[in-house]
Design a protein around this nucleic acid. Structure first.
Length: 588
RNA sequence: GGGGGCGUAGCUCAAUUGGUUAGAGUACUGGACUGUCGAUCCAGUGGUUGCGGGUUCGAGUCCCGUCGCCCUCGCCA
């Protein structure tokens, strides 16, 4: 046995015990006659003392130690002398008086030290990820991830779900995200696709009678990266039979409550609040609203029609909307220059044509360069509708509905951050339900599935499939945490007639449907039970529960924005012979 | 594909309007020190200012291109 204890567990009660510790040299303090080493492993740090009394040549050896050397020390646990205890360390009551030192492996001078005060650039951290992962923060995060996965697995096991693995090598389905493709050697010119999700397989499993399936599944999407998007990511994937949307949400409510309690120590009231998609778009302009703060979108279209201000009136009369938000007490904080920057923000990044604004003066009157265009009466109506009080800053966008949503949602989130409308530890969990079945496909002008083409419409909306598809709402539900989509799911279509109708609406003809999903359509004809499911984004959940802001920090080996691995150099060139075997001819 | 930010010593950063030999902290190397804990003190090594080109008497600084990382719009059923 190389070690008897970890570097995090020794306490005063171990006084006198002879122990062996292994770990990395965190810091060393050489006082000539006595030398201290803080020895680190993922459990913590322990102070090791090398002194002449230790005997042998341990002290002389210790003088050669440097940061990140891997060592083993044997010695006796002793309480620290009075006045030298360190309350900042969990093991600060004691120290280990080293009698023997073995250098297991010297380290080169590392490009950065895992416990340095200043965090190095992310690219350097990724290049030397083994050093970065030695950082206590990263170790805590990966251990948090483990705990969350354990809670998830235990919970769904208690509910009778069984874990079934589905293939990584599957079939490409051109809908949705771009696939990662894997060439087949045995069939030159043919390709597998890595799964974007186990969607089709888990539906097949329902047909097969495994009424409660779950998997912690790796998924792949070849799309551009973001702080919350990686090309490969992990989902807690579930599917159930003989259930409705309430049942699925109930299962996840229970899981979220358990996670909140065990990870955060928060008691949640269940069921988690629910809001329809339409309400979310109306009140917040986004389908994953951040409910940690208010500052809701307020509609002024009716007032705008009569207000006299040309821009507002034209928008209102042209079928657009005039909506705004009230940044309470923010008037002083936002100078003309800063408001110009907000204007640039909503116009350049979110397509708004302008940003109208008023500051509410001490008398409660609306002041703005555009105020002269409004009648006194209109200004009063606007003030009342916006619940304006002295010191408030009112901001308005007049445009198509979708533009007001995008612009005001972005503005609302930005202002909330700048005005600190929520605290770092705040958490808010909710559901957004009843998404539209279809949205307009900008490229083809036809309908596109908002979720995926197997999503079932609400029962009362079945007839709308024929008459007014745009009004048709899906049995869909998204879990939203702090304004981030943490997961989503739907009740699936288990009837092949309905499925065919949906395919027709999506412009997928019979031959195409047969070619791509024939196996599923066929399966649906052999006794498919009513079923549905959900997938939670594990990386996002861990990020949110850990209070971080990038999923890269909760993934051991993430990719950069250009989807490269800075440590291994992936993706890389391959041997020409490999390409030949695969029947591939690519430009180099 | 578009917009933006950043790139200076191993690391984190500074460098006035374009102006002397590009600095500081830390790390590293050597020395001093028997109770430190971000040890301290003394001395030292360390630079193709990402790369290429241009403007200029003179470029870390300005211009063009390019590479890398990050943010973001599009995209992500």
């Amino acid at each position: 046995m190389l070690r008897t204890h970890t570097c995090g567990e020794l306490r005063a009660e171990h006084d006198g015990q002879r122990v062996t510790l292994c770990g990395w040299v965190d810091t060393y303090r050489d006082h000539s006659g006595v030398l201290f080493v803080d020895l680190r492993d993922r459990y913590g740090k322990t102070q090791v003392v090398f002194a002449p009394e230790g005997g042998g040549n341990a002290l002389a050896q210790a003088k050669l130690l440097r940061g990140e050397d891997v060592i083993s020390i044997a010695g006796a646990v002793a309480p620290r002398p009075e006045g030298t205890k360190n309350p900042k360390m969990a093991t600060g009551e004691i120290e280990v008086r080293a009698q023997h030192l073995e250098v297991l492996n010297k380290s080169q001078n590392p490009p950065f030290h895992p416990t340095a005060k200043e965090l190095p650039g992310e690219d350097l951290r990724l290049k030397h990820r083994y050093l970065d992962l030695r950082r206590p923060k990263m170790q805590q995060t990966l251990m948090l991830r483990h705990r969350i996965v354990k809670i998830m697995r235990d919970y769904i096991d208690e509910l009778g779900f069984i874990d079934i693995e589905t293939p990584m090598l599957g079939r490409s389905t051109p809908e949705g995200a771009r696939d990662y493709l894997v060439p087949s050697r045995v069939q030159p010119g043919a390709f597998y696709a890595l799964p974007q999700s186990p969607q089709l397989y888990k539906q097949i499993l329902m047909v097969a009678g495994y009424d409660r399936y779950s998997q912690i599944a790796r998924c792949f999407r070849d799309e551009d990266l973001r702080a919350d998007r990686q090309p490969e990511f992990t989902q807690l994937d579930l599917e159930m039979s003989f259930i409705d949307a309430d049942d699925i949400m109930g299962v996840i409510d229970g899981l979220v409550a358990r996670l909140a309690k065990e990870i955060l120590g928060i008691e949640l009231t269940l069921p988690l609040p629910r809001m329809t998609y339409d309400e979310a778009m109306e009140r917040f302009g986004h389908d994953a609203p951040d409910l940690r703060f208010g500052m809701e979108l307020i509609d002024l279209t009716d007032i705008a029609r009569e207000a006299g201000f040309q821009v507002f009136r034209n928008t209102a009369e042209g079928g657009g909307r005039v909506r705004g938000i009230n940044a309470k007490g923010a008037a002083d904080r936002y100078s003309r220059k800063l408001i110009d920057e907000l204007t640039r923000f909503v116009c350049e990044d979110f397509g708004a044509r302008g940003l109208a604004w008023f500051k509410v003066d001490a008398e409660g009157k609306l002041a703005s360069p555009i105020a002269k265009n409004f009648s006194e009466d209109s200004l009063a109506q606007i003030a009342e509708r916006m619940e304006a009080e002295p010191g408030d800053l009112l901001l308005f966008v007049a445009d198509r509905f979708d533009v007001t949503c995008k612009a005001l949602n972005a503005l609302r989130k930005r202002l909330a951050g700048e005005l600190k409308l929520y605290k770092p530890g705040d958490m808010h969990f909710s559901w957004v339900v009843e998404f539209p079945m279809f949205e307009r496909d900008d490229e083809t002008g036809g309908w596109a599935a908002m979720h995926h083409p197997f999503t079932a419409p609400r029962k009362q909306d079945f007839d709308l499939l024929d008459t007014a598809p745009q009004q048709c709402r899906a049995q869909a539900y998204d879990l939203v945490i702090n304004g981030m989509e943490a997961g989503g799911g739907t009740i699936r279509i288990h009837n092949s007639d309905v499925q065919s109708k949906v395919f027709r609406l999506l412009g997928i003809d019979e031959a195409t449907a047969e070619d791509r999903f024939g196996f599923l359509l066929e399966a649906l004809q052999y006794g498919a039970p009513p079923h549905g499911g959900i997938a939670l984004g594990l990386d996002r959940v861990v990020t949110l529960f850990g209070g971080g802001d990038s999923i890269r920090d909760v993934i051991a080996f993430p990719k950069t924005q250009r989807a490269t691995d800075l440590m291994t150099g992936a993706p890389g060139q391959v041997d020409i012979r490999q390409l030949k075997e695969l029947g591939l001819n690519v430009p180099r």
